[in-house]
């Protein structure tokens, strides 16, 4: 049963992933990506890692995808259709990805993973996660937890600085014009 679910999920993930990177309609691509993410969350559910699945759905589905949609809407109107990618580029990219995949799969297939026994397995509890995250003993993750907070602050400040509206100089003409004009010539 789980096996079938897994295959279904795998199919969903792969198909939507492909769709997401090939669709010429940008908003659709975002939605396909959402399906992929949901599929992955499904995988997490399958291995009883519900906490992560929840995060996956909230952070990705609720955060990132929305961010994407906002971005798309900020930049283009929703129905924007992308240009068709050149075939040559597609072929090269495909060949490169395929060969990379081949190498990877070959390496995986030649590695003798130990047989896993179902007995050793237990589902991942939220409490365990929490304990580990905040533990400073061996195997604890308090330090990355703290550091990532610094990272988030920094990224936030960075995003704000960039996204902050440009100040206009005294005479009212935005610096952009001559700035970009001049620099476009500068090849």
């Amino acid at each position: 049963m789980e096996r079938i679910i897994f295959y279904i999920l795998a199919a969903v993930i792969i198909l939507f992933a492909v769709a997401s990177v090939t669709s010429r309609k940008i908003l659709r691509a975002v939605i396909y990506l959402l399906f992929v993410l949901i599929g992955i969350a499904g995988l997490y559910f399958l291995v009883d890692y519900n906490f992560l699945a929840a995060i996956q759905l909230t952070v990705y589905g609720g955060g990132i995808i929305v961010l994407f949609i906002f971005a798309v809407m900020l930049i283009h109107h929703v129905e924007l259709v992308l240009e068709k990618t050149a075939l040559k580029k597609k072929l090269i990219a495909g060949a490169l990805s395929a060969s990379g995949l081949a190498v990877t799969l070959w390496a995986i297939s030649t590695y003798p993973f130990p047989e896993t026994s179902a007995t050793a397995y237990s589902s991942i509890e939220v409490a365990d996660i929490g304990r580990i995250l905040l533990s400073y003993e061996d195997g604890g993750f308090i330090l990355p937890f703290e550091v990532i907070s610094v990272l988030l602050v920094a990224v936030m400040i960075g995003s704000i600085v960039i996204a902050k509206g440009r100040k206009l100089v005294a005479d009212g003409s935005p610096k952009t014009e001559d700035g970009s004009e001049k620099l476009t010539e500068n090849k």
């Binding site: 960039i162 902050k164 440009r166 610096k175 952009t176 700035g179 970009s180 620099l183 476009t184 500068n186």
Partner: peptide, 8 residues
């Protein structure tokens, strides 16, 4: 991207 007005 700090020079936000510069294209490059």
């Amino acid at each position: 991207a700090y020079d936000t007005y510069k294209r490059i």
